[in-house]
Design a protein around this nucleic acid. Structure first.
Lengths: 228, 228
DNA sequence: TCACATGCTGACCAAATGGTCAGGAATATA
DNA sequence: TATATTCCTGACCATTTGGTCAGCATGTGA
């Protein structure tokens, strides 16, 4: 990547491919272990075994257990942010909410262990995420909330509390990743397939849109019933 | 403390009050610690300190870390079951769902640490709850699901997938206990008060009822279908 | 070929882990 | 009072914890 061998002494980057591969193995293994047992319950030894590397090597790459953990949290937050694009009053509520719910379900489905890692962190009182929750994320929520309120003022949706609405979308979409063990136990399935996911997305979208009285684009009060 | 001097002979049981009190202290402390760090992450030492007792005493009362943990899970499941009363097709959907959502929010509010303990167990793959999830709980869900379907057949609500609906109610109601740290961070509050809880209950009830097209008792809901 | 720098890891450490147990403290019966 | 029975806990144990580090392996540039 960075070859600044001109100015300073040659940085002597060696087997960069191996390094990158090992790092990925460690991150994957760590996400697996941390998501299952939380920060304290996870052991570096277990992560090392899952990664197929000696424990010292894991520490050598990551510095410390805490650094590794924080890095995983950051990675998950980054994935999160990637789908938190801006919205404005001019946008169509139905479209925005539909797209957001779909992306949220998809992200949980693509990174269930990251989602669980995050959930475990919050469950434990979010000791490493206080700043993020009170800062960046809070502002994000406030921004969307303002838009939701403006939509309500324009009569595009019911005047529901926008923050509770966001929490509803978060909890209901992440549920299938975070509580996977429960979902599978109750449904009796080994895993949720593509069709299930699609059905769940449609269900949640329908409930949220209809529940908030969101009108379809252009049309008037068409929400009453959907195809049945 | 024990003054059963008269009446029957004391049945050898000695300081029963102290025993009961110590047990309660241990259970409370353990719920606190386990809910925060999960099974592996919690240490008996930490529980003992929180309970103000020597570690040996905790083990003496509870036998082992695992026995204590399982006991807490069982206690939470018992609380849970207490509000899972039977429903039948003859009941009014709006009433049943409204009452259920309210009780679920209240239970989460009354026992947030128990809720988090449960959540952590599920997050970790529910190693101690496989049987419960695949058995008792699954049957409970199937029973309610059948009733929801019959309601839909009778035109009392939309024909939504009843299992997804139950998951929606579970996730959205428990969210405020399980993700308390996030909720507080974003809202900027120190704690949710009675009014917040009431507002949230009303919000969730509204979304679910309206979203599922549940009619108020006797009459058709404002939006949507007309009377049949 | 030779140095030199970095990659890597087995051996090690102090602290903490869950659990055991001998034996003192407390109470009940005689 | 003496004796029996249960309650409790400090001291201890083997194992595991996160982390360090000396030193060998593996390059790279000359």
């Amino acid at each position: 990547m960075s070859q600044d061998n001109a100015a300073t002494k040659t940085p002597v980057r060696r087997n960069e491919a191996t390094r990158a591969r090992n790092e990925q193995m460690i991150l994957t293994a760590a996400e697996h272990i941390f998501s299952r047992h939380g920060y304290r319950g996870a052991s570096v030894q277990a992560i090392a075994e899952a990664a197929g590397l000696p424990k010292s090597n894991v520490l050598y790459y990551m510095g410390s257990k805490q650094a590794l953990y924080v890095r995983l949290l950051a990675r998950m937050m980054k994935r999160w942010n990637a789908l938190l694009d801006d919205i404005s009053v001019e946008d169509d509520p139905a479209e925005v909410l539909t797209a957001y719910i779909r992306r949220k379900v998809e992200l949980s489905r693509r990174h269930p262990e990251g989602s669980r890692l995050f959930a475990a962190e919050i469950l434990g009182g979010a000791p490493f995420l206080q700043e993020y929750l009170h800062g960046e994320l809070r502002e994000w929520v406030e921004d969307r909330a303002r838009v939701f309120e403006q939509w309500a003022e324009r009569g595009l949706m019911d005047p529901v509390n926008p923050v509770w609405l966001i929490f509803l979308i978060w909890s209901s979409t992440q549920h299938y990743a975070d509580f996977e063990a429960q979902v599978l136990g109750i449904t009796g399935k080994d895993a949720l397939d593509e069709d299930d996911t699609e059905e769940i997305t449609a269900f949640l979208t329908r409930i949220v849109l209809k529940g908030c009285g969101v009108r379809e684009k252009g049309r008037a009060i068409a929400v009453g019933r959907t195809a049945e």
